[in-house]
Every structure is written in C-alpha cells, then in structure tokens.
Amino acid sequence: MLKNVFVLALIVVLTLPGCTMEKKEKEQGYTARDELLGTEIIINIKNSKEAPGACDDIFERIKQIQGKMTVHNIESEIAILNANAGVKKVSLSQDTYNVLQEALTLSSLTGGAFDPTVGPLVKLWGFDSKNFGVPTDKEIQDKLNLVDYRQLQIEKSRDTFMAMLPRDGQAVDLGGIAKGYAGDEAKRILLSHGIKQGIINLGGNIVAVGTKEGGSAWRVGIQNPLAPRGTFLGILQLKDKAVVTSGGYERYFYENGNRYHHIIDPQTGFPSESDLLSVTIIANQSLMSDALSTGVFVMGLYKGLELMEELEGVEAIFVTRDKKVFITSGIRDIFQLIDGDFSYEQYK
C-alpha cells in the first residue's frame, strides 16, 4: 500500500511539468510599438489592464521630448537655441535644461569625446539629413572651431531655465543623448503605472526594467558589429539596467569606395577612427549609457577602458577591429561571449 502511494506521488510530480507549460502559454505578453526619435520603439511588458494605458503614456511622453529636442523641427527648443546662436539667450523647459546639464557633465567626464555642440559637424557631413557627403578640409576646420561644449551656457533661477550659444553658427545636437533620456522617462512611466517588469527597446537602446517573471535576469544580446542586425556575439544577464551600444556600423554612407560612419570625433571633425568596432555601456540610467557609448567609442579602447573601470556603477564591453572583446571587471559573471569569431582579451 505504502509503495503504491509512493508510485502515485511520483506520477503526480512527473506530470506536473505538463501543467506548468500550459500556464506559461496563457501568460501572454503585451507589445506596443511606434516610430519616434527617428527610430522604432518597442515596449514589451506583461499583459494587464494597465498595459495599454502605460504604453500610450510612454509614446505621448516621447513625442513631447522629440518636440522639444529634435533639430528637424524649427519650432523645437533646440532649434530655437541654435537659431539664436551668437544673438541671445533663449528660455527652455526643465526637460531640455536637464538634458543639457547632463550632457555637459558627461562631456567633461569624457574630456570632450562626447560633445553636444557637435551640431555644425553633423550638419556638414549631412548626418542630420539625406544630403550626406565628404566635406573639404577647409569646411571641417571652419566648423571645428565652433564645437566646444565649454562655451554652451546654461542657467536656472527658480522656475526659469535658459541657455545660450555665444557664437554665430554654433549648434547643439542631442542625437547622442535624447533617446537615452526618453528611455529613462519610459521606465519612470512604467513604474508610475505599477508595472515593475518589462523591456523597452528604443532603436537598439535597451532599458531592462526589474526582472523577468519569476525573478530571473533579462537576457540581452549584444550586436555583432560585423553581421546583420539581430546577430549577437554575446549575452548579458541583467536586472534593472540600461544598455546602449554604439558603433560605426549603425549609420554610414559610401563615397569613392570609402565608408564614413555617423559618430563624428569632436576633436578631428571626421568620423571617429578609433581601434573599436563597437562599445556597449551598461548603467543604471539610459541617458548615461547613451552619451557614454558615443563618448567612449570616440575615446578608443585604452582611454575608454580606464574611464569605465574608474566610474562607479558603469560597466562596458569593447569590441575591437581585430575581433577582440574586452570587458570591465564588474560584468565577468554576467556576460557570456558566444560567437567563436571573437575572443576575450585582458587589458592590464
């Protein structure tokens, strides 16, 4: 009799996986997408009553950010700031002020490798429009003189926020940071709706909110910079982190057989020619990941790695032109290299 009870119990336990499988099937996720900030934004959260409203609020908020910070609309705050360069101070919303302030902090942290006043060069190369082309050296020198984040003045007093570009022709471009800010705002809105888990993809910038159902880490693939989009060279396991990857493979054009990518080095005026194919930054804030991925890509491997090891709470993955992968010490246990074409290297 005892034996029979044991067998029965065993059978019950063995058949359990069948039941849990069905349950998993029913727990469908909720996905929302939209095209904003020049890219595709995809939100993946658990299906709930709150889900559609939260996603609508997020897209509405990102539209608002886009309206304030884009250079493609002459009525945006940044366009007005640029139009008044060398003329006068302009007033800003707190949003734009905050982003400019963060941008200046990160500019000085990267020694100007990230610089929001790179606008004139971005325009000259045509990366803000479809009229791209290689400028002459003279043109580059002229615009290079206008690029210097230390000249951008911002000030606040009580509830007024102002900024000014002191010289005619200077221009701010928040292309390397606005998406990051939007990611942080998207996360804040999810949490304010009581949604504590989800993953938001803003054109490749990933904001992993909380954990997966059941508490395990999100698995985020890191793009192989030499293969089509969607091919990853390794996997990061993350809880509550923002990941941004920058590389010359994202946007570029060809002229006379040469390839020119969109990450302009604010010190040379040319697309950055570092030893890197891509940099991935993992931080708590998506804004920080976004700006640092651009800045550190421009800084190159050695300077970049040193800065990343120094900074608290920030980790990085570097992929070099000779297919070596360097990672900071804090992610040894959560990053897994899976593409055999690439190999780990230690930097001393």
């Binding site: 095209e35 595709e40 993946n44 993953i199 993809n201 490749g204 910038n205 990933i206 992993a208 997966k212 999100w218 698995r219 985020v220 693939g221 890191i222 793009q223 989009r229 969607g230 990853f232 996997i235 990061l236 990941v243 941004v244 990857t245 994202e250 991935t280 899976i338």
Partner: peptide
Amino acid sequence: NRLKISIEGRSDNVDDISF
C-alpha cells in the same frame, strides 16, 4: 523607405538585442 525584413522562427534565447 520605412521597410523592415526579418527572419523569424526559433532563435537563441534572448529577450532583446542592443545594437
């Protein structure tokens, strides 16, 4: 041109990709 093509089907187990 607002076009995207992708191959869908079984892929390795990741939740998203940073590119």
